[in-house]
Design a protein around this nucleic acid. Structure first.
Length: 275
DNA sequence: AGCCTATGCGAAC
DNA sequence: TTCGCCTAGGCTG
C-alpha cells in the first residue's frame, strides 16, 4: 500500500524496532547479498523518508535505499526464531531487543540498493516537496504547476513536482477541492493550490498515524448521510478512488473513471465540474 | 486453482 | 512507449 504515508510510517517503525541494535542483514533471495554482507552486524543509525523513498542509514554514511514500487512489502515479526523465507525475500533484518527479538523481511521492491551520501543527495535533488517533511516548500511545486499545460491530475503524480502523492491521494484531494482532474495546471488558482497542499499535509499525517488513507469528512460518511455503510477494499474511507459507477457520497452521481498517465483516475463529474 | 488488478517506478527499446 | 518486477488480495469458476 505504498503512497508516501506508508513509507514515512515504515521509517518510523524501523527506527522504533531496530534503533541502535546490532542488526543481522541477509538476502535470502540473493539479489542484495553483497551489500547485506557489508552491513551485517552493524546498528541502524537513522531512518529517513522522502516521498515514496525510504532510507536506512548505517555507519560511514551508507544508506540502504528502498523503493517499494507497486507491490513491494515489508513484513515484521517478533521472536528469535526466523521463519523460512516466503517468496523472494530481497532483504532480511533481524535483531535481539531488550524484550526479545524482532525481524523484518522485504519482498518485491522496485529498488533496494546501497548508496553513498552523495547518491542519496541526488535522489533528494530529483524529488519535489513532500507534504510529510517539515522542510518542504510548497512554492516549489506551485512554480511547476502554474507553468504547465498538463492536467493537474497528471502533475500531482509527478514525483519531481510533488513527492509522496499517489493514485489515491491524487483522486481524493482533487475531489475535496472540487477540481476537475483535467484542469491544466496553469489554470489552477494559487488559493486552491495552497488549500490542497495544506489539506495533503493533514491527510497524509493522518495516513501515517493510522496506516491507511481516510479522506471522507465526518458529515459525508454513509452513517451521517443516512445511507448503507460500505467497505473499501484498501482499508480506508474515500470519496471516489476505485468507486467506479458507485454513487458519489455527496451528490449520488455515478463516479467516473478514465486512464490518465497510465493509471486509473476517478472523479465525480458533478462535484468536480469542467472549468 | 487460476486469473486479474494494483496505492509505482526504472530500464530497455 | 513498453516491459519487468514477481507480491498480495479479490474474484471467477
Amino acid at each position: 500500500m505504498p503512497e508516501g504515508h506508508t513509507i514515512h510510517r515504515l521509517a518510523d517503525t524501523h527506527a522504533e524496532v531496530f534503533d541502535s541494535l546490532p542488526l543481522r542483514l541477509s538476502s535470502p533471495q540473493g539479489r542484495f547479498a553483497e551489500s547485506a554482507a557489508l552491513l551485517d552486524g552493524e546498528p541502524l543509525v537513522a531512518t529517513d523518508a522522502h516521498g515514496k523513498h525510504l532510507f536506512l542509514e548505517f555507519s560511514g554514511e551508507r544508506f540502504v535505499h528502498v523503493h517499494l514500487g507497486l507491490y513491494g512489502t515489508f513484513t515484521f515479526g517478533a521472536g528469535e526464531r526466523l521463519p523460512e523465507p516466503v517468496g523472494a525475500v530481497r532483504l532480511r533484518m533481524a535483531a535481539k531487543t531488550a524484550t526479545g527479538a524482532a525481524w523484518a523481511d522485504l519482498r518485491g521492491p522496485t529498488a533496494c540498493r546501497l548508496l553513498t551520501r552523495a547518491e542519496k543527495d541526488a535522489v533528494h535533488a530529483r524529488l519535489g516537496p513532500d507534504p510529510l517533511r517539515p522542510d518542504a516548500d510548497p512554492g516549489a511545486a506551485w512554480r511547476r504547476i502554474t507553468r504547465s499545460a498538463k492536467p493537474i491530475g497528471a502533475l500531482l503524480m509527478e514525483q519531481d513536482v510533488l513527492a509522496g502523492v499517489g493514485n489515491v491521494y491524487r483522486a481524493e484531494v482533487l475531489f475535496r477541492f472540487g477540481v476537475d482532474p483535467q484542469l491544466p495546471g496553469k489554470k489552477l488558482t494559487r488559493e486552491t493550490w495552497d488549500g490542497m497542499w495544506a489539506d495533503l499535509v493533514v491527510l497524509m499525517r493522518e495516513g501515517v498515524r493510522l496506516g491507511r488513507i481516510d479522506t471522507v469528512r465526518p458529515e459525508h460518511t454513509p452513517e451521517a448521510m443516512g445511507r448503507e455503510p460500505r467497505k473499501d477494499d484498501h482499508g480506508g474511507e474515500v470519496y471516489v478512488y476505485r468507486r467506479t459507477d458507485a454513487p458519489c457520497l455527496v451528490c449520488e452521481t455515478p463516479v467516473k473513471t478514465v486512464e490518465l498517465v497510465g493509471r486509473n483516475l476517478f472523479w465525480c463529474p458533478t462535484c468536480q465540474p469542467t472549468a
